[in-house]
Amino acid sequence: MAVSQRQKQKAETKKFLIECAMEQFANKGLTATRTADIASAAEVSHGTIFLHFPTRERLLEEVIEEFGSRTAKRMHELIDGDCTLEEVLAAHLKGIGECEGFYAALISETAVLPEGARNALIMIQSAISHHILQVAEREMDAGTIKTMPFDLLFNTWIGLIHYYLSNRALFAPEDSVISRHGQRLTDHYMNLISEKGGF
């Protein structure tokens, strides 16, 4: 029993450290945040971090994976078999909006991150694109959106969202890009890919 209590506590501490790390990464950037900053924010000793994560790199990967599983779960909760593409995009933005600072830092620094972290981001996008693909194929067949290569359909959306997020200081200083511009960007994107144009 004592062991299981200890394991439970260990898992809770790890979860808490991931939470603190996500916040620090959001505020200071993924590259600039030191493990000592995370320890200090969590009010634990520096060594405690390494009891839970063998390396800083592994800690970063686990934070990205945690963000990914939250976003994936959020999309699964919000969308069902017959929702529209617009609803899927709204669910995507909602998921991002819940950890906007972290995601903005992640996409702004992707090119300089270790391979494991970059792969974790590709896997997040893979889960998102899976949802978008299912609905987009149906809407292309129905003729409501234009037929186009799927990678371009997805990357055009991601490109638009990422441009605004990676320039948050310009588009929404001290505010959320998603809540300030999300609806407008979604409307614009739908307008671009919609077969009938304008709505």
Binding site: E115, R118, I122, M123, L133, F150, D151
Partner: peptide, 21 residues
């Protein structure tokens, strides 16, 4: 194949990411 189809990523880079995951 799924990553290549949906994200347009280079085949080898996609395989590498899939292996990592």
């Amino acid at each position: 194949e799924f990553i290549v189809k949906t994200q347009g990523i280079d085949q080898e880079a996609a395989r590498n990411a899939a292996r990592g995951m």
